[in-house]
């Protein structure tokens, strides 16, 4: 059955408070999920008072400032700080997003920061995305052809066919969509999730790919694909403004069309 009784150490307890340095006047409270599986202690929510007069405008600026000035043990992933690497995906103010492209000004009141929902935690805001990446690999995200490329030039694609890839090739695999999806929470062992299915669709509609049928065969499954119930959280949270739900619906449509 569903997990009605959570394991004892999954209960999140109040944590430490880190006050702002002396003299800070314009402070803002950040509540951040902390968990270290190695200690065996329960997860906790630490609160940090951050001096906003010396803090950058984005959520990532604030957590970097917290790590540099208040608690160096805070763990999170980050790299490009411009919304293209997808490393700093986390649950900010109850919504999945990239810390680097989420402005602090767009959040009302205190800022609550949790890791991506329903994934194993490595430490603090670093979630274990092993299964998420493996699911991406399982859809074989590379071109598959039976015909060799012309010897003197690349494979051609008409501008109209190239346009079909718009809205699916831009995915940065940050996992905001999949980890916001209730179907993915309950069945991520079998449901591929919006990110992998968007990637699958990107290759299904690629005019240069010869494996369209095999790709459709591969996702035609009550769990891999049909766990999507058009909840649309994926489209709502995607930091790149993509719509995985539409790609999944198009995939279902193609599956129906090829048998009706």
């Amino acid at each position: 059955m569903a997990e009605f009784n959570l394991p004892i150490n999954s209960i999140v307890k109040p944590g430490k408070h880190f006050p702002a340095p002396e003299g800070a006047v314009n402070t803002r409270k950040f509540s951040i999920y902390r968990y270290d599986p190695d200690t065996g202690a329960n997860p906790r929510v630490d609160t940090f008072d951050v001096d906003m007069d010396t803090c950058g405008p984005m959520v990532l600026d604030a957590i970097i400032k917290i790590k540099s000035e208040l608690d160096a043990s805070l763990s999170f992933r980050r790299s490009c700080r411009e919304g293209i690497c997808g490393s700093c995906a986390m649950n900010i103010d109850g919504v999945n997003g990239l810390a680097c492209t989420t402005a602090l000004a767009d959040i009302d009141g205190d800022v609550a920061i949790y890791p991506l929902p329903h994934q194993p935690i490595i430490k603090d805001l670093v979630s274990d995305l092993t299964n998420f990446y493996a699911q991406y690999a399982s859809i074989e995200p590379w071109i598959k052809t039976d015909t060799p490329a012309p010897p003197d030039r690349e494979r051609l694609q008409s501008p109209a066919d190239r346009e079909k890839l718009d809205g699916s090739y831009e995915c940065i695999m940050c996992a905001c969509c999949s980890t916001s999806c209730p179907s993915y929470w309950w069945n991520s062992d079998r449901y591929l999730g919006p990110a992998a299915l968007l990637a699958s669709y990107r290759w299904i509609v690629d005019s240069r790919d010869d494996a369209t049928g095999e790709r459709l065969d591969e996702v035609e499954d009550p769990f891999k694909l049909y766990r999507c119930h058009t909840i649309m959280n994926c489209a709502q949270v995607c930091p790149k403004g993509l719509n995985p739900a539409k790609a999944i619906a198009e995939t279902k449509k193609m599956l129906v069309e090829r048998r009706v």
Binding site: T130, N131, Y133, A134, Q135, A137, S138, D189, R190, D217, E218, V219, E220, D221, P222, F223, K224, L225, Y226, K252, L255, V256, R259, V260
Partner: peptide, 21 residues
């Protein structure tokens, strides 16, 4: 087992479209 093997599981059942339709 490798993560990819876990993710692939028992493969696709090739059904579900009938149910959906």
């Amino acid at each position: 087992r490798t993560p990819l093997s876990v993710a692939k599981g028992r493969g696709s059942s090739g059904s579900g479209t009938e149910h959906f339709w």
